[in-house]
Design a protein around this nucleic acid. Structure first.
Length: 470
RNA sequence: GGUGCCAUACCCAAGCGGUAAGGGAACGGUCUGCAAAACCGUGAUGCAUCGGUUCGAAUCCGAUUGGCACCUCCA
């Protein structure tokens, strides 16, 4: 079955055709590790994980490269503003290396919590300075650079296709002037960008390397070009990121990469929309921000968040609220409970044969392969859970099949096994006795007691069932 | 100033020219001593508004209104 993806380059839905027959080269822009990732950042990583799973689900081997940006980025693509890493280091009294290492670990933890499949290569910018320097050298010998104010700049005049990804043309970009943004006066064009800094105004810059242009550090676009080419070759299949990367970061990556190699670099550009909060854009710089650990501390499972994200299409803005997260949790737990019922009834994984089961599998594949229509795929899951014309084994098998893409850890669901504390068991027994005596007042009182202790007691025809309050 | 996106029931949300998926909430019912859970059932004659194209429009085109994002550190 064909996989269709919306390609930002060209702005249309396209059938995915990999360069190699059964292997896909995928590069996704990773985090800048100067702080925790907020759940908006994580939405993008989840969408990329879904894409990867869709490819794997279709039996592609995926070579996935993700960068860790552990070099300080300036708050501007010119030589202005603060360096976030340096700022954070200064605030916390740690070295930038310690900061980078700490938040890299935090990111990996979040990734594991969210059941993101590990990248084939997770590479740090600071480990690839040599590759970046070599790429800049190639650009320099191709006449794409100039030195000004001590820094090496990329000259967009030398790359006529500049701005194509963002639907902007070079002449417009050169003439358009935004009044609200100041421009680095060393630049020939306001959209030129730094490849290598030597003349930073930041005296306390801790990360510095020798280069042909002097001791300094790389600009903030070159790492993705250098590392993706190192691991995936000078042309590869898919490059992902958040939509904000389109006009500057990815535009500049394309300029550098294609100017250096003189050929097309990436075939499919896939971008995820933003997660918004009640007020609009989610931001790290507003001070307080929503992290996965915050959600966990409020009692949510990371899978609740993952399921929430699956409720919207990756190309649509999604508004976060705890109300919606609660709904996602409720729904997910209801699905988990149904899986537990299936397991309780002895369901096991089998080979699908019935026409109904196969058509459900097919329906699911059509959803996920059609530009990752996850909300619709979830609807197929509900349909499957309700189906009364397939066996329990088929139902369970389908759920696991779907979960290859959902990644909601349905494969880890087990039969409910709960140790009932003896004091609770005594209360249950007392209540059974009270009910037998038709002393319902007492029975209700005992049930309240059990509820207060953090459990939920339900009467069923088979007797009372205890579960933990969520 | 430039580039995009969006508007579907109380809420979230799919829909890509053939007569409005799905989930939650709500309501009714079955079950229950009562609850809870579960299960069954009910719900937009209409998709911001106004025009147009078409045999046919939520879907295409134009205008209007309202909202959002990106181009500034952030996915």
């Amino acid at each position: 079955m064909a996989i269709n993806l919306y390609n930002t380059m060209g702005r249309k839905l396209e059938e995915f055709k990999p360069i190699k027959e059964k292997e896909v080269g995928l590069y996704t822009c990773g985090p800048t590790v100067y702080n925790y990732a907020h759940i908006g950042n994580l939405r993008t990583f989840i969408f990329e994980d879904i894409l990867k799973r869709v490819l794997i689900h279709s039996n592609y081997k995926v070579k996935h490269v993700m960068n860790i940006t552990d070099v300080g980025h300036l708050t501007d693509d010119g030589d202005a503003g603060d360096d976030k890493m340096t700022k954070k280091a200064k605030e916390s009294g740690k070295s930038v290396w310690e900061i980078a290492s700490f938040y890299t670990d935090a990111f990996i933890n979040d990734s594991n919590d969210l059941n993101l499949i590990k990248p084939t290569v997770l590479c740090k910018a600071t480990d690839h300075i040599k590759e970046m320097i070599n790429l800049i050298k190639r650009l320099e010998s191709g006449g794409h650079t100039y030195i000004s104010g001590g820094n090496v700049y990329f000259s967009i005049d030398t790359f006529p296709d500049y701005g194509k990804l963002a639907n902007q043309n070079l002449d417009d970009l050169k003439t358009a002037v935004r009044e609200d943004v100041s421009v680095d006066e060393n630049k020939k064009n306001s959209k030129d960008f730094v490849l290598w800094f030597t003349n930073s105004k930041f005296g306390e810059q801790q990360m510095m390397w020798d280069s042909p242009w002097g001791r300094g550090y790389p600009g903030w676009h070159i790492e993705c070009s250098a590392m993706s080419m190192k691991y995936l070759g000078e042309s590869f299949d898919i490059h992902c990121g958040g939509i904000d990367a389109i006009p500057v970061h990815h535009t500049n990556e394309i300029a550098q990469s294609e100017a250096a190699t003189n050929h097309k670099w990436v075939n499919y550009w896939v971008h995820g929309e933003f997660l918004l909060d009640e007020t609009g854009k989610m931001s790290k710089s507003k001070g307080e921000f929503l992290t996965l650990s915050l959600l966990k501390s409020k009692g949510y499972d990371p899978m609740d968040y993952r399921f929430f994200v699956l409720g919207g299409h990756y190309r649509s803005q999604l508004r976060f609220s705890f109300e919606n997260l609660d709904t996602a949790r409720k729904n997910r737990l209801s699905i988990v409970a149904k899986i537990q019922d299936l397991l309780e009834a002895g369901a096991k994984k089998i080979v699908l044969e019935s026409e109904v089961a196969l058509s459900l599998a097919n329906e699911f594949d059509e959803c996920v392969n059609n530009n990752m229509n996850m909300p619709k795929a979830v609807a197929v899951l509900w349909k499957t859970l309700k189906a009364d014309d397939i066996s329990n084994d088929e139902k369970y098998t389908l759920i696991l099949y779907f979960d290859e893409v959902f990644g909601l850890r349905f494969d880890e669901v087990e039969k409910p096994k709960m140790e009932i504390p003896s004091e609770i068991q005594e209360l249950i027994d007392a209540r059974v006795e009270a009910k037998k005596q038709k002393d319902f007042e007492k029975a209700d009182k005992i049930r309240d007691q059990i509820t207060d202790l953090g459990y939920i007691l339900k009467d069923t025809p088979k007797g009372p069932i205890l579960s933990k309050k969520m």
